[in-house]
Amino acid sequence: MTRNALPLLFGVAVLLLWQAAVVGFDIPRILLPAPTEIFAALIADPSTLFADLNQTFFHSTLIGLGIGCASGFGAALLVDRSPFLRRGFVPLASLAGALPIVGIAPIAVMWFGFDWPSKAAVVAALTFFPSFVHTVAGLESVGALERDLMVSLAASRGQMLRKLQLPASLPFLFAALKVNSVLALTGAVVAEFFGTPTVGMGFRIATEAARMNIDRVWAMIFVVALCGSGSYAIIALAERRLAYRS
């Protein structure tokens, strides 16, 4: 508990300072609204808020994340069977991970339309590469002796995978999930700049900013941050429950 107290204290202090500064120095609301005003904007229109959340987080982000992680994982399982393919594809995938993949958003819109499927496609493309690279590394991380042990027991390929490689790659899978949970939300919000039905967190931020409703923009940023930190925290918690100590 005391471990969390310090950062919490820091956060509260920043909020208080923020409120005091905005009120005290009478900062223009266009620049920076006070936390209380942001909170008021947050609870002002719950139905719109929920619709945006549903569109961007529960559809674009989570579905895209699921597809991206699962296909990266599956591709890694395939490539793991051939050292030759592994040596060829892994460097390419690591390079691809460093490229600005969000840029395919306009293409995704042409292929899948304005609604959430095109955003989910961008998210899937973004999260595929970290998932692939980390899974391959995880499957390869098995020690030589452990591998010998399974071979000496004449374990089948499936047993090798289930009983040795997959458990050994768990830390790598969680690392990929953490990276991807952040990437996915970014991708979903960014993709909405290339056209969207009139709903979604990215869309809301863009239009409210254009209308100078800055308190609503901040409220939405807060929600997005909550989604991001929330999914990160859930993954970290799951990791602590599942991961083993070595």
Binding site: T186, I214, I221, V224, G228, S229
Partner: peptide, 11 residues
């Protein structure tokens, strides 16, 4: 880093 940058960009 869990706040998507684009959410902040207009701000």
């Amino acid at each position: 880093q869990t706040v998507p940058i684009l959410a902040l960009a207009p701000m």
